[in-house]
Design a protein around this nucleic acid. Structure first.
Lengths: 243, 243
DNA sequence: GCCGATTTGTCCGTATGTATC
DNA sequence: CGATACATACGGACAAATCGG
């Protein structure tokens, strides 16, 4: 699959920023210069720069230039922030990820579950409980609900590895969109047990609830991820919208 | 200040989606149609649609069209998610916001504070502690650190109202960028006291630490916002990056 | 399975506006 | 004021995906 031009430019600039080819607070080469170095149109370099802005790597200043505001993250911790699976995220950070399936079952959505998960009443669902370990430490307790119709043939064996790999590689599904809500909730006995926590210490969890859509516009997944509070970090970059 | 064309198109489409002019899961008019209705170029409508995608309002599907995937948020709670002040956010949700200043002081950054806040050592700083009330309920305890050099003339009176209004209206500063990290931390006695909580109930807080940059590329603010866990909600929409 | 029409994705070139220096 | 830089907008070309006949 040949990559798009703007994407190679984006990656090249990103890599140069990360490796200090451009210093912090320094201005990047101007658009006109970039047009020449990459032999492409202005729109294409602007598109690459736009992604660096949303990544929080640079800021553009009309009349001046594009300033590098990237600073590497010092504390190494488990990071979430984009659409990527636990396995992907762990591999990216050079850690060893293991998932253990606690429960693998199916059911039909009733009225109460419909309002809670967002699935239509009567839909057939796979329900999976999993614990995700990072370097032998239990970090996340996941409650996954997959729409059976959209994710046929899901098994416990697949859940042990990576559901998303199955979705993308085998079912050729494209994940597009994920609406997430983050809250803080009381720790339950289940949390305590499987994450090996003690509620007399922290008695809360960081909870991320997400509704995920595929390219058919189907909301095929609802997941509640319950994170150990002491290892939880969520990075975000907010930009004044001028995209 | 005359608005940009793509922005008026964006707002018009957004409003039409919110008011059910386009039904959930329905396809919006094609780009060619939108070009005619708004009498503009293709790039301009594409730019408007791009923002709707990042907002999680629609998803684009090559060869098919643009699908409405907007569903209104049912639970009414305090929402954070973009760069906006507490006052703005409250007003947007139709609530009454009040801020109370607990502490207003100045100091010079020492080595330890430098690594914690990200300000350079020796910088002069305003340090403000505030409690934000929403409809008479204390929700957020804020620790604000403002770079004195970039925010001259800040007073306790301004902090009682809205610092951001002062920055934008009086100092004509433009806020561009805010890098945020969300964590869950133990509740302190200060939290307990000023947010009228009881640590025997929830003993944790949702904490958002943010580094905010202005259009001069200066990191002029470091803030730690400590949120009551029972009223905390953070909305986010993650998109497979093809912007 | 193929073909053509439709629709979004990528890319180019150009012109004009606006902010900075 | 002029030169430089990014912001907005236009128009056109071709690629890639979808869908109906």
């Amino acid at each position: 699959m040949p990559k798009a031009i703007y994407e190679t430019i984006y990656k090249d600039l990103k890599q140069k920023i990360e490796t200090d080819v451009f210093a912090y607070q320094e201005l990047l080469p101007s658009e006109n210069t970039l047009i020449q170095t990459y032999s492409c149109s202005r729109n294409t370099v602007r598109r690459a720069v736009r992604r660096l802005v949303t990544d929080g790597y640079v800021q553009t200043i009309q009349g001046k230039g594009v300033r590098n505001i990237y600073q590497p993250i010092t504390q190494t911790a488990f990071t979430i922030g984009e659409i990527e699976s636990f396995q992907e995220s762990a591999a990216r950070n050079g850690h060893n990820a293991v998932s253990k399936v606690l429960l693998f079952t199916e059911f039909t959505v009733n009225e109460k579950q419909a309002s809670c998960t967002g699935f239509p009443q009567g839909a057939d669902i796979y329900y999976i409980q999993r614990v995700h370990y990072l370097d032998d430490m239990p970090l996340i307790l996941n409650h996954n609900y997959f729409l059976k119709e959209a994710v046929p043939g899901l098994t416990k064996e697949i859940a042990e590895k990576s559901v998303y790999e199955y979705l993308e590689q085998t079912l050729h599904m494209t994940i597009v969109n994920s609406k997430r809500i983050m809250t803080v909730e009381k720790m339950t006995q289940i949390d305590e047990k499987y994450l090996e926590m003690n509620a007399s210490d922290y008695n809360c969890m960081a909870v991320i609830s997400s509704h995920t859509y595929n390219s058919d516009g189907v909301m095929f997944e609802y997941t509640q991820s319950r994170h150990r509070p002491d290892y939880f970090r969520f990075y975000d970059n907010a930009v004044r919208k001028t995209l």
